[in-house]
Write a protein that binds this DNA or RNA. Structure first.
Lengths: 180, 180
DNA sequence: TAGCTTTGGCTACTGCCTATAGCCTAAGCT
DNA sequence: AGCTTAGGCTATAGGCAGTAGCCAAAGCTA
């Protein structure tokens, strides 16, 4: 996948590298899509853990949002292939199972919680926690990440021309939703 | 491609729908990647024309940026499959030829020009036209578009939960780079 | 008008892929 | 001691990209 793109995964190649015959893989996974589903799940779980750990020690609110976003972006740059599978839809016909998708909902809830906390502390306008505010927050994260993955893949979090913007995102968001 | 994802394009299926045998397609395109390249180019040209036409009547500057972004986002939602090919990298092994990529550079230059004009008119801080400002501008566009394509494909520009944010982007950008 | 070239179709084929059917051996459990 | 299960295998079907090479009709040229 790293060499040829996410959709380039071939079970035959996997088998070859494992030193077994292709059909033997079907003892472990019922189909190629099942392999993708397992990868998708593993990716979502890793990403969820990264954003949670990033927020970790900080008070819930804007102060936690920055480190959490950065930790997430760093995880993505270290797991680009999984990120492509998770955030784009590169594999024809593949849609993740609800179990595999569950951690993604938890990530969304994690950031919604941080934003609500920030509103509670008077750091943001209450609208920030509304549907549109959350959509904007999600888009603000997705932007640099998507640009980085498609225009400068291979770059690390530190080098990236777009990932460098991530630490500034909380300030951008706060500028859009200043406290009343 | 619309039915199964960009990477799901099969020359055999194309041939079947054209009512010819698969090898006959090779009289027109030397390979599957060449088909993608032609699509990529056509997409980039269409998108470039859309953002240019969107800016069309307006004075160069912030006033033109809004309509231009909206026109671009609308084009993307009307040509989602091409947009996936252009803005993501879904096809294993495919990288566009320089000729096909040229219009993408023109799009970048188009928005850089609008931002420089806005700076010249005192609507934005000069830093907005710097490297980081342009990267942020590009990310601001990419964010809602990417979210929309991966989370709510199928939706039209008007319906989209994320495309609705596009008209607000110039104000967001201006909030980050207020004139001195 | 006669003959050559080009265009655009075709069949046959190679090699790769996913997936299924069904065989077999060895380990583990009862 | 015997049954079950795990995990390997071969053979095979059917789909795909791409190549080789044939052929007819259209168009161009002497």
């Amino acid at each position: 996948m790293a060499e040829e793109g996410v959709a380039g995964l071939s079970l035959a190649t996997v088998a070859r590298r494992l030193g077994i015959q292709p059909p033997s893989l079907y003892k472990y996974f019922p189909s190629r899509h099942a392999v993708y589903d397992a990868l998708f799940r593993r990716g979502q779980e890793g990403y969820l853990e990264a954003v949670r750990r990033g927020a970790g020690p900080h008070e819930p609110g804007l102060a936690a949002m920055g480190p959490s976003l950065e930790a997430g972006a760093r995880w993505i740059m270290e797991n680009q292939v999984l990120a492509q599978l998770m955030f784009w839809r590169p594999v024809p016909g593949f849609t993740p199972s609800p179990e595999a998708y569950a951690p993604a909902l938890a990530v969304h809830e994690h950031f919604a919680e941080l934003i609500r906390a920030a509103v509670g502390r008077g750091e943001l306008h209450p609208d920030a926690a509304g549907e549109e505010g959350l959509a904007l927050a999600a888009s603000l994260i997705a932007g640099p990440v998507s640009q980085q993955l498609s225009n400068e893949p291979g770059a690390s979090y530190e080098e990236g021309r777009f990932t460098r913007l991530v630490p500034r995102l909380p300030a951008v968001f706060a500028a859009v939703y200043p406290p009343p």
